[in-house]
């Protein structure tokens, strides 16, 4: 009886150890193909639009602009710095034209710069310190995100997209394969705060108001409203 209990305890410990060690093994063996391909596809995207990828010294991050040059995503070269880890900088004009009352946007999450005509959505994820290599290029910085914040990276099966889940339903997506996709870069916004702040989705321009199939945190397939701004880089 005693032997049996010891055996059960030993087996339980073995299972727990295997479960604990598994992510390490996964990492070491590069079994995380989504992460791997996320990096390669991101590299392909930024290589396709070299003039749209720049380093923003003021914000100490790599900025990727949409092809129209109006909106951009800025990824901090070091998440341990005082700047937001990632921020979305949007042209406010289409929203204001559609009825946006900027004062009604949630404070802190939506920062309106009237002078520049921009709305910035800052996102913070932690204090991960990126090495010097991360500062060399947007790709290296992205690699650090994959390494330190793997949970932000996802694969969107329906559109065959990779993306960074920025938070609050906002995303930045890019095509896994530029050759086969006509939406190579997509800025994705949660329309709800905008609509609450007066935006009439029917009147929005430059952005597409659409229903998108996604899975919620429980894995439940749902349709959600999004503002989308896709670009074909080819």
């Amino acid at each position: 009886m005693k032997f049996k209990k010891i055996a059960i305890l030993f087996k339980s410990l073995l299972v727990i150890s295997v479960l604990a060690i598994f992510p390490v093994v996964v990492n070491a063996l590069s079994l995380d193909v989504v992460a791997k391909v996320a990096v390669t596809s991101f590299e392909a995207v930024i290589k396709a639009i070299p003039d749209k990828v720049t380093f923003d010294g003021a914000k100490e991050g790599w900025a990727i602009k949409g092809l129209d040059g109006k909106d951009r995503i800025i990824i901090s070269k070091d998440f341990s710095s005082k700047n937001p880890d990632i921020s979305l900088e949007l042209d406010a004009a289409p929203f204001i034209k559609a009825g946006l009352d900027v004062a009604k946007l949630p404070v802190a999450k939506y920062i309106y710069d009237g002078a520049a005509g921009k709305i910035t959505l800052p996102f913070t994820y932690g204090q991960a310190k990126f090495g010097a290599a991360a500062q060399k290029s947007a790709l290296e910085t992205f690699k650090q995100i994959v390494k330190n914040h793997r949970d932000l990276i996802g694969y969107h099966e329906i559109l065959d997209h990779y993306g960074i889940a920025l938070g609050d339903g906002n995303m930045f997506e890019w095509a896994k394969d530029l050759r086969t996709n006509d939406k190579d870069i997509v800025f994705v916004l949660n329309p709800e705060p905008f609509i609450n702040a007066g935006v009439d989705p029917g009147k929005i321009t430059e952005w597409v108001f659409a229903k998108v199939d996604i899975k919620d945190k429980d894995g439940k397939p749902i349709k959600v409203d999004k503002f989308l701004k896709p670009f074909n880089v080819k």
């Binding site: 996964v26 079994l31 995380d32 193909v33 989504v34 793997r150 694969y155 899975k215």
Partner: peptide
């Protein structure tokens, strides 16, 4: 969807 290969393995 996040770790398909691990899921399969």
């Amino acid at each position: 969807m996040q770790y398909p290969l691990i899921y399969a393995l």
